Simulated scan of single mutants.
Amino acid sequence: MKIVPLLALTALVAGCATVPPPDAPRFDHSLTARAQSERIKYVILHYTVSDLPRSINTLANGTQVSAHYLLTDTSPPFFYTLVDESRQANHAGYSNWKIYNQLNAASIGIEIVNPGFRETPQGRVYAPFQQAQIDQLIPLLKDIVKRHNIPFGNILGHNDIAPQRKQDPGPMFPWKQLADAGLIPWPEPSRVTARMAGFQEQLPEVSWFQRKLAEIGYAVPQNGELDQATRNVIAVFQTKYRPSLYDGTPDAETAAMMDVLTSPVPQLPPPAATLPVTPASPAQPDVPSESN
Protein backbone atom coordinates (compact mmCIF):
# COMPACT_ATOMS: atom_id res chain seq x y z
CA MET A 1 0.00 0.00 0.00
CA LYS A 2 3.04 2.31 0.47
CA ILE A 3 4.30 1.76 -3.10
CA VAL A 4 1.91 4.26 -4.71
CA PRO A 5 2.88 7.22 -2.50
CA LEU A 6 6.56 6.34 -3.06
CA LEU A 7 6.11 6.36 -6.84
CA ALA A 8 4.30 9.67 -6.66
CA LEU A 9 7.10 11.16 -4.59
CA THR A 10 9.69 9.87 -7.07
CA ALA A 11 7.80 11.44 -9.97
CA LEU A 12 7.53 14.73 -8.10
CA VAL A 13 11.26 14.79 -7.41
CA ALA A 14 12.04 13.95 -11.07
CA GLY A 15 9.71 16.71 -12.24
CA CYS A 16 11.38 19.21 -9.99
CA ALA A 17 14.77 18.23 -11.41
CA THR A 18 13.72 19.42 -14.87
CA VAL A 19 12.56 22.85 -13.74
CA PRO A 20 15.16 25.42 -14.89
CA PRO A 21 16.64 27.71 -12.28
CA PRO A 22 14.97 31.12 -12.07
CA ASP A 23 18.01 32.91 -13.58
CA ALA A 24 18.32 30.58 -16.64
CA PRO A 25 18.07 32.19 -20.10
CA ARG A 26 14.60 32.13 -21.56
CA PHE A 27 13.96 31.45 -25.26
CA ASP A 28 11.08 32.05 -27.63
CA HIS A 29 11.34 29.97 -30.81
CA SER A 30 8.28 31.40 -32.52
CA LEU A 31 10.21 33.74 -34.85
CA THR A 32 12.58 32.93 -37.73
CA ALA A 33 14.72 35.52 -39.50
CA ARG A 34 14.31 35.75 -43.27
CA ALA A 35 17.88 36.98 -43.80
CA GLN A 36 19.74 33.71 -43.39
CA SER A 37 21.32 31.05 -45.56
CA GLU A 38 23.13 27.75 -45.42
CA ARG A 39 26.53 27.98 -43.77
CA ILE A 40 27.99 25.53 -46.29
CA LYS A 41 28.35 27.20 -49.69
CA TYR A 42 31.18 25.27 -51.33
CA VAL A 43 32.53 21.77 -51.86
CA ILE A 44 36.31 21.54 -52.24
CA LEU A 45 37.93 18.54 -53.94
CA HIS A 46 41.44 17.30 -53.15
CA TYR A 47 43.77 14.41 -53.86
CA THR A 48 45.72 12.88 -51.00
CA VAL A 49 49.15 12.44 -52.67
CA SER A 50 49.52 9.17 -50.75
CA ASP A 51 48.15 5.67 -50.47
CA LEU A 52 45.11 4.74 -48.40
CA PRO A 53 46.84 3.79 -45.08
CA ARG A 54 48.87 7.01 -45.02
CA SER A 55 45.83 9.04 -46.08
CA ILE A 56 43.84 7.62 -43.17
CA ASN A 57 46.70 8.28 -40.75
CA THR A 58 47.05 11.89 -41.93
CA LEU A 59 43.36 12.79 -42.08
CA ALA A 60 41.98 10.75 -39.18
CA ASN A 61 44.85 10.59 -36.71
CA GLY A 62 46.75 13.77 -37.44
CA THR A 63 46.12 17.05 -35.65
CA GLN A 64 46.73 19.47 -38.52
CA VAL A 65 44.48 18.52 -41.44
CA SER A 66 41.18 16.72 -41.90
CA ALA A 67 38.32 16.35 -44.35
CA HIS A 68 34.65 15.55 -44.16
CA TYR A 69 34.98 12.60 -46.55
CA LEU A 70 37.79 10.36 -47.73
CA LEU A 71 37.13 8.45 -50.96
CA THR A 72 39.20 5.26 -51.08
CA ASP A 73 40.92 3.66 -54.06
CA THR A 74 39.76 0.17 -53.07
CA SER A 75 37.69 -2.08 -55.28
CA PRO A 76 34.98 -0.96 -55.01
CA PRO A 77 35.74 2.51 -53.63
CA PHE A 78 33.83 3.84 -50.64
CA PHE A 79 33.78 6.90 -48.39
CA TYR A 80 35.10 7.25 -44.88
CA THR A 81 33.08 9.90 -43.05
CA LEU A 82 35.76 11.60 -40.96
CA VAL A 83 34.10 14.88 -39.92
CA ASP A 84 30.38 15.48 -39.55
CA GLU A 85 29.10 18.01 -42.08
CA SER A 86 27.86 20.19 -39.23
CA ARG A 87 31.45 20.68 -38.05
CA GLN A 88 34.45 22.37 -39.66
CA ALA A 89 37.19 20.28 -41.23
CA ASN A 90 40.67 21.71 -41.78
CA HIS A 91 41.17 21.02 -45.47
CA ALA A 92 41.31 24.35 -47.33
CA GLY A 93 43.91 26.35 -45.42
CA TYR A 94 44.62 29.87 -46.60
CA SER A 95 42.13 30.24 -49.44
CA ASN A 96 40.07 32.72 -51.44
CA TRP A 97 37.13 32.60 -53.82
CA LYS A 98 35.04 35.61 -54.79
CA ILE A 99 34.08 37.39 -51.57
CA TYR A 100 35.08 34.50 -49.30
CA ASN A 101 38.40 33.68 -47.71
CA GLN A 102 39.46 30.98 -45.26
CA LEU A 103 36.96 28.61 -46.87
CA ASN A 104 37.18 25.95 -44.15
CA ALA A 105 34.26 27.63 -42.42
CA ALA A 106 32.01 27.64 -45.49
CA SER A 107 32.81 24.37 -47.23
CA ILE A 108 32.77 20.60 -47.23
CA GLY A 109 36.10 18.95 -48.04
CA ILE A 110 36.39 15.69 -49.97
CA GLU A 111 39.76 13.97 -50.21
CA ILE A 112 40.27 11.37 -52.96
CA VAL A 113 43.00 8.77 -52.57
CA ASN A 114 45.37 9.41 -55.46
CA PRO A 115 49.19 9.52 -55.60
CA GLY A 116 49.11 12.95 -57.21
CA PHE A 117 52.22 13.31 -59.35
CA ARG A 118 55.81 12.20 -59.77
CA GLU A 119 58.71 14.11 -61.18
CA THR A 120 60.39 12.61 -64.24
CA PRO A 121 63.15 13.78 -66.61
CA GLN A 122 60.34 14.68 -69.03
CA GLY A 123 58.51 16.71 -66.42
CA ARG A 124 55.76 16.19 -63.87
CA VAL A 125 53.45 13.23 -64.53
CA TYR A 126 50.05 13.13 -62.83
CA ALA A 127 48.22 9.94 -61.87
CA PRO A 128 44.76 9.26 -63.29
CA PHE A 129 41.68 8.79 -61.13
CA GLN A 130 39.76 5.54 -61.15
CA GLN A 131 36.46 5.81 -62.98
CA ALA A 132 34.91 3.87 -60.11
CA GLN A 133 35.93 6.72 -57.78
CA ILE A 134 34.21 9.30 -59.98
CA ASP A 135 31.12 7.07 -60.15
CA GLN A 136 30.98 7.21 -56.35
CA LEU A 137 31.83 10.91 -56.13
CA ILE A 138 29.14 12.32 -58.43
CA PRO A 139 26.13 10.95 -56.47
CA LEU A 140 27.60 12.27 -53.22
CA LEU A 141 28.12 15.71 -54.77
CA LYS A 142 24.55 15.77 -56.03
CA ASP A 143 23.31 14.85 -52.57
CA ILE A 144 25.40 17.52 -50.84
CA VAL A 145 24.35 20.19 -53.33
CA LYS A 146 20.69 19.35 -52.83
CA ARG A 147 20.79 19.18 -49.04
CA HIS A 148 22.74 22.41 -48.58
CA ASN A 149 21.31 24.29 -51.56
CA ILE A 150 24.83 24.96 -52.82
CA PRO A 151 24.88 27.45 -55.72
CA PHE A 152 25.69 26.14 -59.17
CA GLY A 153 29.41 26.37 -59.84
CA ASN A 154 30.50 26.19 -56.20
CA ILE A 155 32.21 22.82 -56.49
CA LEU A 156 35.89 23.71 -56.73
CA GLY A 157 39.35 22.24 -56.60
CA HIS A 158 41.87 23.06 -53.92
CA ASN A 159 43.96 24.71 -56.64
CA ASP A 160 41.04 27.00 -57.55
CA ILE A 161 40.98 28.51 -54.08
CA ALA A 162 44.76 28.42 -53.48
CA PRO A 163 46.35 28.75 -56.93
CA GLN A 164 49.72 29.96 -55.66
CA ARG A 165 50.43 26.88 -53.57
CA LYS A 166 48.20 23.95 -54.57
CA GLN A 167 47.84 21.69 -57.63
CA ASP A 168 45.14 19.26 -56.52
CA PRO A 169 43.07 17.67 -57.82
CA GLY A 170 45.33 18.21 -60.85
CA PRO A 171 44.92 17.98 -64.62
CA MET A 172 43.83 14.33 -64.59
CA PHE A 173 40.69 15.04 -62.60
CA PRO A 174 37.70 14.68 -64.99
CA TRP A 175 35.91 17.98 -64.41
CA LYS A 176 33.99 17.52 -67.66
CA GLN A 177 32.14 14.56 -66.12
CA LEU A 178 30.96 16.83 -63.31
CA ALA A 179 29.80 19.35 -65.92
CA ASP A 180 27.94 16.63 -67.80
CA ALA A 181 26.25 15.70 -64.52
CA GLY A 182 25.00 19.28 -64.14
CA LEU A 183 27.27 20.13 -61.21
CA ILE A 184 29.56 22.82 -62.65
CA PRO A 185 29.46 25.26 -65.58
CA TRP A 186 31.42 24.48 -68.72
CA PRO A 187 32.46 26.65 -71.68
CA GLU A 188 30.25 25.42 -74.51
CA PRO A 189 32.62 24.30 -77.32
CA SER A 190 30.76 25.89 -80.23
CA ARG A 191 30.70 29.28 -78.48
CA VAL A 192 34.42 28.93 -77.67
CA THR A 193 35.21 28.16 -81.32
CA ALA A 194 33.13 31.10 -82.50
CA ARG A 195 35.01 33.54 -80.26
CA MET A 196 38.49 32.17 -80.87
CA ALA A 197 38.82 33.74 -84.31
CA GLY A 198 38.58 37.25 -82.93
CA PHE A 199 41.04 36.54 -80.14
CA GLN A 200 43.47 34.99 -82.61
CA GLU A 201 43.48 38.25 -84.54
CA GLN A 202 43.87 40.38 -81.44
CA LEU A 203 44.76 38.85 -78.07
CA PRO A 204 43.51 40.89 -75.10
CA GLU A 205 45.89 42.65 -72.74
CA VAL A 206 47.01 40.85 -69.60
CA SER A 207 44.73 43.10 -67.56
CA TRP A 208 41.75 41.67 -69.47
CA PHE A 209 42.73 38.12 -68.43
CA GLN A 210 43.15 39.26 -64.84
CA ARG A 211 39.70 40.87 -64.79
CA LYS A 212 38.06 37.78 -66.29
CA LEU A 213 39.75 35.46 -63.80
CA ALA A 214 38.61 37.65 -60.92
CA GLU A 215 35.08 37.71 -62.33
CA ILE A 216 35.06 33.91 -62.36
CA GLY A 217 36.20 33.88 -58.73
CA TYR A 218 39.99 33.52 -58.64
CA ALA A 219 42.24 35.59 -56.42
CA VAL A 220 44.60 37.11 -59.01
CA PRO A 221 46.74 40.24 -59.23
CA GLN A 222 45.18 43.22 -61.01
CA ASN A 223 48.38 44.90 -62.10
CA GLY A 224 48.31 44.34 -65.86
CA GLU A 225 51.56 42.35 -65.69
CA LEU A 226 52.14 38.75 -66.72
CA ASP A 227 53.94 37.94 -63.47
CA GLN A 228 54.36 34.49 -62.01
CA ALA A 229 51.32 34.84 -59.75
CA THR A 230 49.12 35.60 -62.77
CA ARG A 231 50.63 32.72 -64.74
CA ASN A 232 49.87 30.39 -61.82
CA VAL A 233 46.20 31.34 -61.85
CA ILE A 234 45.93 31.01 -65.64
CA ALA A 235 47.55 27.57 -65.39
CA VAL A 236 45.01 26.47 -62.77
CA PHE A 237 42.18 27.64 -65.04
CA GLN A 238 43.70 25.74 -67.97
CA THR A 239 44.20 22.67 -65.80
CA LYS A 240 40.45 22.48 -65.29
CA TYR A 241 39.10 23.48 -68.69
CA ARG A 242 41.95 22.56 -71.04
CA PRO A 243 44.14 19.95 -69.37
CA SER A 244 45.98 19.19 -72.62
CA LEU A 245 48.00 22.40 -72.21
CA TYR A 246 48.31 24.28 -68.93
CA ASP A 247 51.50 26.31 -69.16
CA GLY A 248 49.97 29.53 -67.84
CA THR A 249 50.34 31.34 -71.15
CA PRO A 250 47.41 33.59 -72.08
CA ASP A 251 46.32 32.48 -75.54
CA ALA A 252 43.27 32.74 -77.81
CA GLU A 253 41.59 29.53 -76.67
CA THR A 254 42.02 30.39 -73.00
CA ALA A 255 40.60 33.84 -73.66
CA ALA A 256 37.62 32.37 -75.51
CA MET A 257 36.86 29.96 -72.66
CA MET A 258 37.05 32.74 -70.09
CA ASP A 259 34.84 34.97 -72.19
CA VAL A 260 32.20 32.27 -72.64
CA LEU A 261 32.17 31.42 -68.92
CA THR A 262 31.63 35.06 -67.99
CA SER A 263 29.05 35.79 -70.70
CA PRO A 264 25.53 34.46 -70.14
CA VAL A 265 23.93 32.66 -73.02
CA PRO A 266 21.66 35.11 -74.83
CA GLN A 267 18.03 34.36 -74.14
CA LEU A 268 15.86 34.59 -77.22
CA PRO A 269 12.55 36.36 -76.66
CA PRO A 270 9.55 34.06 -76.62
CA PRO A 271 7.64 33.89 -79.88
CA ALA A 272 4.98 36.56 -80.18
CA ALA A 273 1.55 35.39 -79.22
CA THR A 274 -0.67 34.96 -82.22
CA LEU A 275 -4.38 35.57 -82.09
CA PRO A 276 -6.58 32.79 -83.37
CA VAL A 277 -7.68 33.42 -86.90
CA THR A 278 -11.42 33.38 -87.42
CA PRO A 279 -12.20 31.67 -90.70
CA ALA A 280 -13.95 33.92 -93.20
CA SER A 281 -17.61 33.27 -93.85
CA PRO A 282 -18.26 31.65 -97.22
CA ALA A 283 -19.26 34.10 -99.93
CA GLN A 284 -22.99 34.46 -100.34
CA PRO A 285 -24.51 34.49 -103.89
CA ASP A 286 -26.17 37.68 -105.00
CA VAL A 287 -29.94 37.63 -104.49
CA PRO A 288 -32.02 39.62 -106.98
CA SER A 289 -33.86 42.47 -105.40
CA GLU A 290 -37.62 42.24 -105.41
CA SER A 291 -38.02 45.99 -105.55
CA ASN A 292 -38.14 47.95 -108.81
Score class of each variant (00 low, 15 high):
A33W: 08
E253N: 11
S289P: 03
I40W: 00
R191L: 14
A67R: 07
A181Y: 09
E85M: 03
S291C: 07
N159Q: 14
N149R: 15
A235M: 05
L261V: 06
F78Y: 13
P76K: 06
P250G: 00
Y69W: 09
Q267G: 02
P128F: 05
L7Y: 08
A280C: 06
P271T: 13
I216F: 08
P187E: 01
A14P: 00
L6K: 02
L141A: 03
D51L: 06
W186P: 09
D160C: 02
Q167E: 15
V277G: 01
P128D: 13
R26L: 13
T10K: 09
P250F: 01
S107V: 00
I216C: 01
S30R: 13
G15N: 15
L137H: 04
P266H: 04
G109C: 03
G217M: 08
L12R: 01
S244W: 06
F27Y: 14
K98G: 08
G182M: 08
L71R: 05
V277L: 12
G217Y: 03
Y47A: 11
S291F: 14
A283S: 14
Q228C: 04
L140N: 00
P139C: 10
R124T: 15
D180M: 13
P285I: 03
N292P: 10
A35C: 08
Y100C: 00
A11C: 14
I150Q: 07
A283F: 11
S190C: 04
F27I: 11
L203V: 04
E215D: 13
N90I: 01
A283H: 08
P115F: 05
A256P: 07
G157Y: 02
V145E: 07
L82D: 06
Q130C: 02
P288Y: 05
K142A: 05
T249S: 05
E38D: 13
E111R: 07
D227L: 00
P221D: 15
K212V: 02
V265L: 15
Q267H: 08
D23K: 13
Q88L: 12
I56M: 09
Y80Q: 04
R211C: 02
P243G: 01
P21Y: 14
Q36D: 07
Q133W: 04
S50M: 15
T262G: 06
D160L: 00
